[in-house]
Amino acid sequence: MIPIEHILLLSAVLFTIGVLGVMLRRNVIVIFMSIELMLNAVNLSFVTFARSMDSMTGVIFIFFIIVVAAAEAVVGLSIILSIFRTRKTLNIDEYNLLKW
């Protein structure tokens, strides 16, 4: 049996990598990918807990998270598409519309 702490540690590492990616990368799409990575880290801990607690709820949750992630990816990518049309760049620093 895999020790539960190790899986959770993996989850934490992946999550932190995701956080770093969001804060350090400047390409919007890569930032988006980092977010997906964070979601996966969370999924991993859900499965771990579901297994170690003999419960199915975590697995059901993952099902929903994946659906939401899919929806999010679809909408987010289309937003990026439409911003790209006007800004002609994927550099997030150029997306400073929030300033005004």
Binding site: I2, I7, L10, E36, N40, N43, L44, V47, T48, A50, R51, V59, I62, F63, I66, A69, A70
Partner: peptide
């Protein structure tokens, strides 16, 4: 793969399919 090891085959499958 890790999901499979955790006996969550369904999750593993949709992980690969969807993600």
């Amino acid at each position: 793969a890790i999901y499979v090891m955790l006996n969550a085959e369904f999750v593993a499958v949709i992980q690969v399919l969807v993600y």
